[in-house]
Structure formats: structure tokens, C-alpha cells
Design a protein around this nucleic acid. Sequence first.
DNA 1: GCCGTTTTCGGCCCGACTGTTTTCAGTCG
Length: 584
Amino acid sequence: MENVEITHVLSEVADLLEIQGANPFRVRAYRNAVQTIDGLTRPLAEMVGEGEDLTELPGIGKDIAGYIAELVHTGELRLLRSLEKEVPGTLADLLRLDGVGPKRAERLWHELGVESLDDLEEALDEGRVQALRGFGEKTAQRMRRSIDDFRRHAGRALISEADELVRPLLAHMADAPGIEVLEVAGSYRRRKETVGDLDLLAVCDESRPVMDHFTRYPDARRVESAGETRGTIVLRTGLHVDLRVVPRESYGAALHYFTGSKDHNVAIRRRGVERGLKINEYGVFKARKRGGPAKRTSGPSDRVAGATEAEVYEAVGLVWTPPELRENRGEIEAAEAGALPRLVELDDVRGDLQMHTTWSDGTASIREMAEACRELGYSYMAVTDHSKRVTVAGGMDEKRLEKQWAELDKARKQVTGIHMFAGMEVDILKDGSLDLDDEHLARLDVVLVSVHSHMDLPRATQTDRIVKAVSHPAVHILAHPTGRLINTREPCDLDLEEVLKAAKEHGVAVELNANPQRLDLSDLHVIRARELGVPVVVSTDAHRPDHLRFMRYGVDQARRGWLEKGDILNTRTLSDVRRWLRKA
DNA sequence: GCCGTTTTCGGCCCGACTGTTTTCAGTCG
Ligand SMILES: Nc1nc2c(ncn2[C@H]2C[C@H](O)[C@@H](COP(=O)(O)OP(=O)(O)OP(=O)(O)O)O2)c(=O)[nH]1
Ligand SMILES: [Mg+2]
Ligand SMILES: [Mg+2]
Ligand SMILES: [Zn+2]
């Protein structure tokens, strides 16, 4: 059983308990366990199999460790079975709707017999929801909209799609009257591969005019809310945008709050409580005994910090932490120990080791790609067109590859100042053998291997296939290892742990494909690659010159994976990379 | 349900917005 399956079960337990009205802290305990599991780089099944003590993981105690073991061994959880006898499991779906929480879900079920989205829609049509005490017409309307939005599965946007939406939004907000500072916070600032919404932070003296300007954004389909300090609009694409407006002295605390993640915030605030401090989006304050004046009326004398993010961290004995790490995956402990990594930066990248040209499915010539790489300041690049079996991409056979080498020689004379490695993205065939003969493999400077077909093989077969491929002595890099396309295609079912160990054994690097639809390996995967000592290559897989800019997304993901410059092969100098390629 | 250089019991992050409420619960960030 996969970790995601385990977290789904535990999340459903939390949802059903919450609908039942269980102790909210007990509900939270299940969700905390889910958060911990989400950040693991290894399968729980393996950890259980090796007899590891799961209660050493944060938020996992005796009970939940037992439930995990039960799930791993039997594939089922009796606790969930018995909960589902008391509350219909489908009720948890209702919680996905905006404006429907556990209390309303419970009442809809108990008082109207609603168990599913379809039931709710019917009850709305018949006017039964709005008749309920405390529900009213506006609440019903909101539920209707939520169901529509849910059915149109607006979902999460790629970080690259978010970039396209952010640009005009920032341009619009720059004209807001009296605005002093404007930042994008939330998952966008943490550079997550997808964002659920956009979170904007504004600093100004007077919030009203800024909020009004925000709600008049031309691309807004509707205004969801607009208060004194926060508001939400819905873009035509369906994506929500939250705006938070704060005074200057609160900038750091607000940016910290709005950047998140939620679990990072909660952990930081708990550290505050332990130190007699109250942390909110307005600042860090000396905690008051109960009974004191509430809310924002705390006098300025109570304020300890808040103007900058660094102040907030320092107030709880930590150093400023890069947003990419703020997932409550050990960054707080690292910050405390002074052991935060020195994260890789875009400027550290010296070359791009996967790209395509008109020799297969790229749209630009070798020369054009080389010029674009040189413009980015790279000292090397690899031309890695597809092999013959990838027919849809116009893959090359041995003969065409030799012709390409001749063309490469010409390009090397035309575009100087950048080294061009002769490479190929060689297809891994169904049986794990490679789509190019050994003689030509040996003559290439750099050999990438990757899967483009039979992505649905059973786990063990798929794993054996890829392990066999990386075991070939000519191979340097395993490209887009899981084959996922975010929001489109699930990753191959494979035992990545085995693949990484095989890569380590054979001196093969793994790719972090920087194409924003792939980002493959993911952040958690590269954490594991580093732990196992497998070098990572961040490559754009560019099919056009402008795709070379995807490097930014790859580096962002690498940073989320705690990688330093030294963990990444293509931050090394040309001569070091050459040496590395030859040793294989 | 989890957790502990203040605790093995008694806490658990903290605040904004809306609707229908006559004083705030519910939901969300
Ligand atoms: N302290 C605290 N902060 C929260 C809570 N919920 C959200 N936040 C903060 C941290 C989040 O990063 C930030 C923005 O909320 P979002 O719901 O947009 O989450 P985020 O952007 O992290 O992820 P997303 O991609 O939008 O799903 O607000 C909470 O319950 N407590
Ligand atoms: Mg967000
Ligand atoms: Mg948000
Ligand atoms: Zn490919």
C-alpha cells in the first residue's frame, strides 16, 4: 500500500470523525499524521516491513502507528469500516465544497437525508436547504456555485500557468491608490509545482481603496468576499485570488503568515507560545494573560517583532528560512541547529543536458539552440534528440545519428564559446534494453535513457525494466524517471527506491526535468536521491529556444528538495562534467 | 490522538468574513 493511499484513509477518518462532532483535537491529530506522511521520502510499507518504530515520526503515536501497520498488512482499516457504519463515507465529499464544513454537512445529512453531491443538488432544487434554520437563500446560492465549480474541477494550476496569471494581476495592483508594497505569497512563493490559488499581500495606510481596486480587476468573474483587510476574487479561469492588506509595521509578520505553509505557521506559532509570545499576521507580541483586551488593540509596547520575516524567526530563536523549505518537513529543526542547506540558485547552473532539435521533435536547429544556450551564459549543452522507437517524435536511427554528428561539428564551428555534447535521449524498450546499438551508445558523449511507452506495466516489471536500463554501462542519466505529467498522467508505478539504488550502484545520475508539466523527479524524490548519494541533473528538455527558460522551475523544485549546488551535476564546470561523463 | 528542559494531564495557532444570528457560529485563510 502506497503512502498516498494511507493518507487518503486517515483523511477520511478525520473527516468522518469531524462530521460526527468528535473532539477537534483528535481530528487534528489524524490530519497532523497525514501531513507527516505527505513529507516522507520513503514508503511506510517498507518502514513497517523493516520493523522501524513509526512513533518516532512527529504526530504519530501508538494508535496511528497501529492503524498504519494494519493498513500495510491487511489493506484495510477496521476503524474506518465502523465509522462508515455510523456516517455515510460519501459525506466526506461534501467537505470539498466551498462553504460546506463538518457542521453543515452533518445537518444536511441528518435533517435532509443528503449523503452526496447529487443529493445536495436535488435538495437545493426543491428548496429544502434554504428552508433549514440558519441556512437562508445566500448560503444556498453559494452551495450551488460550489457544486458547479467542483464539477468543472478547476483544480490546481501549474506554477507556470500561475506565472501567466500573476503578471497582469501585479500590473493591475501596482496602480492601486496608496499601495506601498506588493508581494505574491502562499504556495506560489514557496514555488510549489502547483498552486490552489494565488495569495497577494499588500502594504498600505488605507486598505479600502486598495481592496476596491482589487475587486475591480477586469479578469475577475466574481467577488467572493471583500472585507477591511482581506478579500477574494475568482478569475475567469476559476482560480481564486486572495488579497491581504496590512500596515507597514506588520509587513514581515504578514508575509510570513501568508507564505505559509499552514503547518510551518502552526509550528512557528507553537514555538512562540512556548516562549510566552503570541504570533499572528500583525506581529510578534508578548502574550497576555487571559482576560486582557482582545484582538488588535494590543498596544505598541507589546510588540516584539514583525517588520521583517527575519525578525519573526529571530523572535523564536531561529534564522530566516527560505520559503521553498517552509513545509514543516524538518526545516525548523535545521534552522535551530544552524543546519539549513545553502540552496542551489539559478545562477549556479552552467549548462543544460537535455534538449531537442529539428533532428527529432524540436522546432529549432542545433545552431539556434546553441545560440540560445550561449545567451543564457552556459558553458555547455547537450543535444539529446529521440531514438528511433519514438516514432511520433521522429526519433533517429544509428544512421541519422551519425549524420547529426556531422551537423554538430558544423554547429561547433558556427557557435563558439559553448561546448556541445553529442547526446541522445535513448528510449528504454519494453524489456529494459536500449533503442540504440552498443557501438553508437559508446560513441556518444552523454547517454540519457527514458521511458516513452508501456508506462502501465506492473510495478515489479516496470522496476526491473528501468533497473536493467540504468545498469547498461553506457548510460549516464535517467531522464524524467516517473513519466508523470502533472494534472494529466499519473507517474509510472515503480519502486523508485530500487531505481535510485541501482543508479547509485552504476554511477548514473537522475534527472529533475524542469518542464513545468513534468518536474520529474519531484521535490521529495530528490531529497531521497541526495540521501542515497545519487547526483541530480536539472534539465529543461527544451523543444524550442524559449523552453530553455524552464530551468527556473527545475531549480525551484530542486530548492524545495533541499539541494545545494554540489548536489547538482550541471552546476559543475565543463571539465568536471567531462570527467564525470567519462568515468561511467 | 499526540505530546512533554515549565507538564504523563491538560493543553493543542490565531484571526477575518459572511449570513442570519439578535450576539456569533461556521468556514476559511
Ligand atoms: N496560521 C495559519 N495560517 C494559515 C492557515 N491556513 C492558511 N494559512 C496561511 C498559510 C498559507 O500558505 C496561506 C495561504 O493559504 P492557502 O490556503 O492559499 O494555502 P497555500 O497557498 O499554502 O496552498 P495552495 O496552493 O493555495 O493550496 O495562509 C491556518 O489555519 N493557520
Ligand atoms: Mg494559496
Ligand atoms: Mg489562499
Ligand atoms: Zn522525453
